[in-house]
Design a protein around this nucleic acid. Structure first.
Lengths: 336, 336
DNA sequence: CTGAAAGCGCTAACAA
DNA sequence: TTGTTAGCGCTTTCAG
């Protein structure tokens, strides 16, 4: 806590609080020489405005909450970094909330803003449905991230998962592959993203007249690399033939690479593999991993832009923004 | 911003603000029936205390700042997660500050607390020396993380890097390896941790009478996996003989695994490899990576404990806490 | 262009 | 056990 207050500076400088405030805020209408004197006192005393008091007076906190399922998940960590950078650039601080995909934590996120803690919230929901969010979200600046179905009343930014999956499968087919598998669907996956990706996967196969059979869609008990590996191993063991593999995310792809290597299958010669999220992991594997790459920087920029517009008073129905994606081509599924 | 205030509730319930406050805070001395009535009004009106106002009144913010070089670096991300969890458990929120190892950002970190933004700071410095920090740190709750040399006036928590490196090398020697290399020293590394690890590495070699020659210590231009890979590749190309490799961190180890594989060397048969930090990466590689494992949970717990003691008024000289480390043994350097 | 004073919403010391 | 009231430090009309 700072010892020295605005009033102390005013007293010492022999001026009013307002004048000091004007100097602090670089307001124009202060005589240059007065300004210099006040500034000198500020420096001398080491005065720092108390932000909490300022907030109470202004009603603006200058903070946004960033609510992510897990901050150490590579994708969320990378996205969080971009958001933190963008927020800093725009003069906001970031309060981090880790929901761990828990219901109560997700509800708490939306409560924060009602408590005047933050000016707005960027939220990647997992458990809460869009209806539920819409019901709780009254007039609060809130931007949703991720693949949940489209809430009408809330701003939302994401990539086109269907198109991205389609692009990935097309890339595999262009490599001359014919039997493209998908790893994997997860039992209690309530995020919706897997489904969207599966739709794109199917569309691309249908459009190319490629085989689309249930045994090509693997399933995993959880989202771990081990789960992904197990799903691939099972497919191999049961004699499912496939020469290409689209993974739901990079973690599954890691597991898949391992399972394929263990089975003596070469990547990409025997099986071409594409991951999803284009996390740092993708550059670290061997072979390096081709991955669907959401434009994380754009995601961050657009999310902040929408949020700041809301904070600035923008009213209106929820806006949907689709940001670009690319296929980051690496060794596991090279150009042909 | 909440529309409904404490005074509104009081008015509506026909009681004083103090009574409402008592109910909100679960203070004991309120007639049960009165409490119920007030609670009903609170629920009815949807009253949420304004935290900013509370802060101004109490002087406590209930927030701590966590200042990390990069929030998407696997080690920092995993450590941040633990700290965030521990903070939540203790009723604190976490304000994230990403310094990107920049001077000005690191200075800003220490300024925050002077502005009454947070009650304390947990800080992993990179650029700022301990002297500089000590000079700026007056009576502020501050806990340092990481390997910087020991500041006398500031609390500090870390693992024993020298001992950990020694343990890792001993593990390699116990495997029957004789020529243990180190990857890698980085040109402008100002963190000090590499040096500590190098000291332990040397100590263990000396104590075992194993060869300790300059060509066994590789060097890399930067901290990337590519840098690590390049350093290993160069060693192989120049005919340096080694059958074990201690890496400065998991990222270097990833690069090393790749370089070794490219050179046709098998891990661990030809070269046993140990990483550092025991990040998620270590479980995802193939072969899986043995890694020096700082007890991140302990790091987080101790850091918060020290910080909260300071926040609670603890005075006194800087305390140093060493938390445990282990060697997380996996395939790249198994048990013998 | 500068000063005085009324809040922002809550807490806590002091009364009752 | 409950009510009154004076701040917390800053911003911001509104006078001067």
């Amino acid at each position: 806590m700072p010892r020295v207050r605005l009033v102390d500076v005013a007293q010492r400088a022999g001026v009013s609080m307002k004048t000091v405030s004007n100097v602090v805020h670089n307001h124009p209408h202060v005589a240059p020489e007065l300004r210099a004197r006040v500034q000198a006192v500020i420096d001398d005393l080491g005065y720092r405005p108390n932000l909490t008091a300022r907030r109470l007076a202004t009603g603006r906190t200058g903070m946004i909450a960033l609510a992510m399922p897990e901050i150490d998940h590579p994708y969320f960590a990378e996205l969080s970094r971009r958001i933190a950078e963008e927020a800093t650039r725009r003069g906001y601080r970031v309060l981090i909330e880790q929901t761990l995909s828990q219901d109560d934590a997700e509800h708490a996120v939306l409560r924060d803003r009602e408590e005047g803690l933050v000016d707005g919230v960027i939220f990647q929901p997992v458990r809460m449905g869009t209806l539920e969010i819409a019901r709780l979200d009254h007039d609060t600046p809130l931007v949703l991230l991720g693949e949940s179905a489209s809430p009408v009343t809330t701003d939302h930014v994401m990539i086109d998962n269907v198109a991205a999956a389609r692009d990935a499968v097309r890339h595999l087919l262009a490599l001359g592959r014919t039997r493209v598998a998908f790893a994997a669907v997860v039992a209690d996956d309530i995020t919706g993203s897997t489904n969207r990706r599966l739709v794109g996967y199917q569309e691309a196969l249908v459009e190319a007249d490629a085989p689309l059979t249930p045994d090509l869609v693997f399933s995993s008990p959880d989202f771990s690399p081990e789960g992904g590996a197990a799903s691939v191993r099972r497919a191999i063991d049961t004699g499912v033939a496939f020469d290409a593999l689209l993974c739901r995310d990079d973690k599954f792809a890691l597991g898949a690479l391992k399972a394929l290597a263990d089975a003596g299958l070469r990547v990409p010669e025997d099986v071409a593999v594409i991951g999803w999220d284009d996390t740092q992991l993708a550059s670290y594997t061997s072979p390096t991993l081709t991955s669907v790459s959401p434009d994380k920087t754009a995601l961050a920029e657009v999310a902040l832009e929408l949020l700041l517009e809301r904070i600035g008073g923008h009213q209106g129905p929820g806006r949907h923004r689709i940001v670009p994606h690319t296929i980051a081509v690496r060794q596991s599924a090279p150009y042909r």
